[in-house]
Simulated scan of single mutants.
Amino acid sequence: MPAALIALSLIPVLAGTARLVELNGGPSLIPSDPRFTASPLPVVVHIVSATTYALLGALQFAPGLRSRRPGWHRASGRVLVVAGLGVAVSALWLTLFVPPQPGSGPLLFVLRLVFGPAMATALLLGVVAIRRHDVMTHRAWMTRAYAIALAAGTQAFTEGAGAALFGHSPLALDASRAAAWVVNLAVAEWAIRRHSAARGRRGGRVLAGVGRP
């Protein structure tokens, strides 16, 4: 699981790294975007936060690492909450104060206004849950937050499929990006329910064993 998540993260991470090189005065490794050069600070915050969140967050899904090094899990979790909030807040800032991407429409603008706060809310609910020692709820909300953030990687695939099927209109671009959030959250909910069901089965077997004469 962590390896697959890191592989999916590499798409936006590499693009973000190339953008940082350009903003730092280096060569343009990807097409230049004057929207970002005019307001570089929120772009840098977003890229650094997203890179940290995507790569470090993938390791949180390694059960062996969580069980063998709980101290590391807690410490990295604190870093991830800060990085995740940085992703959500900077994304909201860029949506509101930076001109929209050429070729996109109002649907994408609305979706970003929805999913930025949704990610921040999921992170905060996860923090509240773990402070109550509710590990299952904590895990569920953190999984949802990560799924929202990782949509940037999934969009590389949904955009290609959307363009092939529906063309390059603004509505097609917006819908293909929306599909990435839908797919990621659907997979996240499946994983949450699967883990909950497996935990319930294990608990049932333990209770059955205790009740035997």
Rank of each mutant, 00 (worst) to 15 (best):
Trp93Leu: 08
Trp93Gly: 09
Leu94Phe: 03
Leu94Asn: 05
Thr95Asn: 15
Thr95Pro: 01
Leu96Ser: 12
Leu96His: 10
Leu96Val: 14
Phe97Glu: 00
Phe97Pro: 00
Pro102Thr: 13
Gly103Asp: 00
Gly103Cys: 10
Ser104Tyr: 09
Ser104Cys: 03
Gly105Ile: 05
Gly105Pro: 04
Pro106Trp: 07
Leu108Gly: 09
Phe109Ala: 15
Phe109Ile: 14
Val110Tyr: 08
Leu111Glu: 12
Arg112Ala: 01
Arg112Gln: 09
Leu113Pro: 00
Leu113Asn: 11
Val114His: 06
Pro117Cys: 11
Ala118Asn: 04
Ala118Met: 10
Ala118Arg: 08
Ala118Leu: 12
Met119Glu: 11
Ala120Cys: 05
Ala120Trp: 05
Ala120Gly: 09
Thr121Gly: 11
Thr121Phe: 07
Ala122Lys: 12
Ala122Glu: 11
Leu123His: 02
Leu123Gln: 02
Leu123Ile: 05
Leu123Lys: 03
Leu123Gly: 05
Leu123Glu: 00
Leu124Asp: 06
Leu124Glu: 07
Leu125Gln: 06
Gly126Val: 04
Gly126Phe: 01
Gly126Met: 05
Gly126His: 08
Val128Lys: 15
Val128Tyr: 11
Ile130Cys: 04
Arg132Gly: 00
Arg132Ser: 04
Arg132Lys: 15
His133Pro: 02
His133Ala: 15
His133Cys: 08
Asp134Leu: 03
Asp134Met: 03
Asp134Ala: 12
Val135Trp: 02
Val135Leu: 13
Val135Ala: 15
Val135Met: 13
Met136Phe: 11
His138Asp: 15
Arg139Glu: 00
Trp141Arg: 08
Trp141Gly: 03
Thr143Leu: 07
Thr143Phe: 00
Arg144Asp: 07
Arg144Trp: 01
Ala145Ile: 08
Ala145Gln: 04
Ala145Ser: 11
Ala145Thr: 10
Tyr146Arg: 02
Ala147Met: 02
Ala147Ile: 04
Ala147Gly: 02
Ile148Lys: 03
Ala149Asn: 04
Ala149Thr: 06
Ala151Ile: 01
Ala152Ile: 11
Ala152Cys: 03
Gly153Glu: 06
Thr154Ala: 09
Thr154Tyr: 06
Thr154Ser: 10
Thr154Leu: 10
Gln155Ser: 11
Ala156Arg: 14
Thr158Ala: 11
Glu159Phe: 14
Gly160Cys: 02
Ala161Asn: 07
Ala163Ser: 14
Ala163Tyr: 04
Ala164Gln: 08
Ala164Phe: 07
Leu165Ser: 14
Leu165Ile: 12
Phe166Pro: 10
Phe166Gln: 06
Gly167Thr: 03
His168Tyr: 03
His168Cys: 00
His168Met: 05
His168Phe: 01
Pro170Ala: 13
Pro170Glu: 00
Leu171Ala: 15
Leu173Ser: 12
Leu173Gln: 10
Leu173Ile: 12
Asp174Trp: 00
Ala175Leu: 15
Ser176Tyr: 07
Ser176Asp: 09
Ser176Glu: 06
Arg177Glu: 09
Arg177Tyr: 13
